[in-house]
């Protein structure tokens, strides 16, 4: 496998009963790359993201992150399903930012960030705290360290959530429509943080409707519809000169 490929998905298939949410989806994401996945709702974008960190189980296909098969251990001709503990170990390397933030409401901003490093990675509290404060500084919320999520705006909560994902020092971060639940005036503060993160070389897979962000920040863009990849390529090419008529139609509909 190519050394530069961090995430490799091959023929990923996922069914919900008779509904095929993902139909043989393949995707390559290089290390340090920002990859945006766009498409209408129900196209399977979020499901693909959730398969990468095993929030959903695949029914077919396979995903490798960092050359490690996700969810299974290969022994000879057998694939052994991972145990709860092994899955947790793999998830530590993959951060995730949710549409609805999902901060822990009973913990302050800084406690949200140190929870993983301290409890899961066993980092000393003092060290984790220092790192968390630096991360909050980086997302522009140094003064909100001791605030509870309920005391923060949506945009601030999402920035804390990004800092929480970064706190685990992941190989990549998955963003599941990170700005869709935000009031319009709060979108840009979150996108700015993501832009900064991209510039620092973090590998990011971003499911989004923000085509402006995709155009300016993403390296590659993938357009999905009804569980299939319709088109994938360099961001500038897919967004400016799409090969598929469906892609062009979607981009036009979002812009109008």
């Amino acid at each position: 496998m190519n050394q530069d490929i961090l995430v490799k998905a091959i023929d990923v298939t996922k069914n919900y009963g008779h509904f095929r949410a993902l139909d043989k989806v393949s995707l390559d994401v290089a290390r340090g790359e920002v990859s945006c996945i766009i498409g209408p709702s129900g196209s399977g974008k979020s499901t693909l993201l959730r398969c990468i960190n095993l929030l959903e189980r695949m029914d077919g296909g396979a995903i490798w992150v960092n050359d490690e098969l996700i969810g299974y251990r290969r022994e000879g001709n057998n694939l052994h399903e991972f145990s709860d503990a092994e899955i947790s170990r793999q998830r530590r390397r993959i951060g995730m930012v949710f549409q609805r933030f999902n901060l822990f409401p009973h913990k302050t901003a800084v406690e949200n960030i140190i929870e993983g490093p301290v409890q899961v990675l066993g980092e000393p509290v003092k060290e984790a705290r220092q790192r968390a404060l630096a991360l909050l500084e980086r997302v522009g919320l140094a003064d909100k360290a001791n605030h509870y999520p309920s005391e923060l705006s949506g945009g601030q909560q999402q920035r804390v959530a990004i800092a929480r994902a970064m706190g685990m020092r992941p190989d990549l971060i998955l963003f599941d429509e990170p700005t869709s639940a935000l009031d319009p005036e709060l979108v840009s503060e979150v996108l700015d943080v993501m832009k900064d993160l991209a510039a620092s070389g973090m590998t990011m897979i971003v499911v989004t409707h923000e085509l402006g962000f995709a155009r300016n920040v993403a390296n590659t863009v993938t357009f999905m519809e009804t569980g299939k990849v319709v088109e994938t390529g360099l961001a500038s090419e897919v967004l400016s000169a799409p090969r598929s008529a469906r892609t062009a139609e979607f981009i036009k509909a979002v812009h109008s």
């Binding site: 960190n53 503990a85 947790s88 998830r91 993959i94 999902n102 899961v120």
Partner: peptide, 10 residues
């Protein structure tokens, strides 16, 4: 889900 994504066990 948030707890799982930071690598917590059940």
């Amino acid at each position: 889900e948030a707890a799982r994504t930071i690598g917590m066990t059940q």
